[in-house]
Design a protein around this nucleic acid. Structure first.
Lengths: 301, 301
DNA sequence: TTTCGATGGATGTCAGACAGCTACGTTATT
DNA sequence: AATAACGTAGCTGTCTGACATCCATCGAAA
């Protein structure tokens, strides 16, 4: 029995079919069929019930699946950890981010690569659910995101580093006469102003915070449009349809000449931002260092 | 990287020498040397410092040793557990015992084999330290022993099932005129009687309990002899040198015609007995069932 | 309902890779 | 100088994976 066989078994368990599993393993179906038979003979158990074309795990197969996953994971992490001892901080660091936090990364990555020039980066963007899956299958090690992190897995699976929050600003078209002699607005003075809200199925937190703040100040916001895309939201503002309120960092990705940003000093809430990683998994040294970089510079916001 | 290579690495780490490690693995030195080289190349680290004939672990080697041991153990336990699912309760159950508890085993083994006739037994006797080592290296799964269990490892490593305690009795020669019209003695009436104490370097608990009980009753026992062997102790009693006080079960291994046993109703302490096993290791089903047998019958003492 | 084609698992045969063995050379220790 | 131990080279046998083939099942079409 060796770990290669456990990997073969797990692939079949995952796919429920030998031929497809063989493809994911980049081998042909007959040797995979044979290896499964050898495993079953060695252990003296039947691991799959064969229902025509479908293979379902027996009780023994189910027990083995859990154990095999743990063993394979442990071996992978051991190899990674041992390699890192001598080779130092290098290799590809894979990070996930929600769109609205991507803007936090360029500056940090530039700084990190001055310190660790042999580290390369892969950035995957997605919503919380997708990023949660990427973390689980180790496509990525870290997520930079709005908090709380709402994936398909319990929040206790994660460790997090809370970053300095992101102030909200109002986005107005540049060509309108929006009190351009002042550097800030009061939210309560916008009670009747048409608002465009950034809101999608998966990310309603931002909008809720703004609505609740308006209610706290004693009025209902005049939301005339809900939009799931930042760039479309900004285009609507430029077109004069209305204004919008967004976290300041979101806008740093947009160097659009036709908008202006103003602070909202009467908003007390801010947008929570943080780094998320899996609690009980080996974290490569480069990932640890990247987290430390955010940690050591978070007073500088 | 596979588990066979981890086993090879661990053997070298344990022996500190390739040739000797190869012998324990039943292969020759050159392939083992090559496999170590392949492992070092795959991981990109040096695992051993070569000091002439001696190989000592590097930092990376030390880290890998701990991880490799865990992985190999986990795989072994997984294979054992999966095999047990279909093949049921069979195979050899290895039990350790201190000498004074060996007498507890025959009856239970006989009963167990009626229920599970395909289980065979291996009994290893030793003191607490030796039995602790046997548990660690999996030579045995269970220990039947006096409590508390005093091995080289912390007590928190173990689970235990406490058994009904063992009353102390006084052992006297049959041919002496020892109030043979009564069925019991009072300990306090033996204040001046010569006592033979069962005591060795490793098992002083029994003796201490008796001494403390005498003190509680207001006198110092008249110990004239300390002896580490039960059979010698009994021979001294038969020869009329003195009497001794032992847990009742110890005597069930001796059907000697020349001694008599009497209860000691004024002794409030008894000898604690239990079954010990390792907490964080897989326990085979036959071991679990054997424990349950003691558990289900302990009301019948 | 029956037939046919597609899909997928199991078995057989063969080639190449790899693990282990023997022989030998080198280095370190006694 | 002799012995012990590690490393390298060459050889052999076993095992793994690929290709070919057969059998069983399923789904679609007639």
């Amino acid at each position: 029995m060796d770990v290669r066989q456990l990997r073969y078994f797990l692939a079949i368990a995952k796919e429920g079919q030998i031929t497809r599993a063989a493809k994911t393993l980049n081998i042909e179906q007959p040797p995979l069929s044979r290896q499964l038979k050898l495993i079953e003979e060695e252990l003296g158990v039947t691991l799959f019930d064969r229902n025509g074309k479908r293979m379902t795990l027996t009780e023994a197969g189910t027990v083995l699946q859990a154990k095999a996953e743990a063993i394979v994971r442990q071996l992978n992490e051991t190899v990674t950890e041992i390699k890192e001892i001598d080779q130092g901080i290098q290799g590809m660091l894979s990070i996930g981010s929600v769109f609205s936090c991507v803007s936090l990364l360029p500056e940090k990555i530039a700084f990190f690569r001055e310190r660790y020039p042999r580290v390369t980066f892969k950035i995957l963007e997605g919503d919380h659910v997708v990023l949660g899956e990427y973390l689980e299958d180790r496509s990525i090690e870290l997520v930079v995101t709005r908090l709380p992190f709402e994936s398909n897995y319990d929040i206790s699976n994660y460790e997090s580093l809370r970053l300095p929050s992101d102030p909200f600003v109002i986005v107005v078209p540049k060509k309108r006469n929006w009190r351009q002699t002042e550097s800030s607005f009061l939210l309560k003075d916008l009670a009747t102003t048409p608002l465009i809200a950034l809101k999608s199925d998966k990310t309603i937190q931002l909008n809720e915070k703004i609505v609740n703040e308006c209610r706290r100040l004693g009025f209902e916001p005049n939301i005339i449009c809900e939009c799931s895309s930042v760039s479309i939201t900004i285009a609507l503002v430029i077109a004069g349809i209305g204004v919008t309120i967004l976290p300041k960092s979101v806008l740093s990705a947009f160097s659009v000449a036709d908008i202006e940003l103003f602070d909202l000093p009467d908003i007390t809430v801010q947008s929570d931002v943080g780094i998320i990683w899996l609690k009980n998994r080996y974290l490569t040294k480069k990932a640890q260092r990247f987290i430390e970089l955010f940690e050591s510079t978070k007073e500088n916001y």
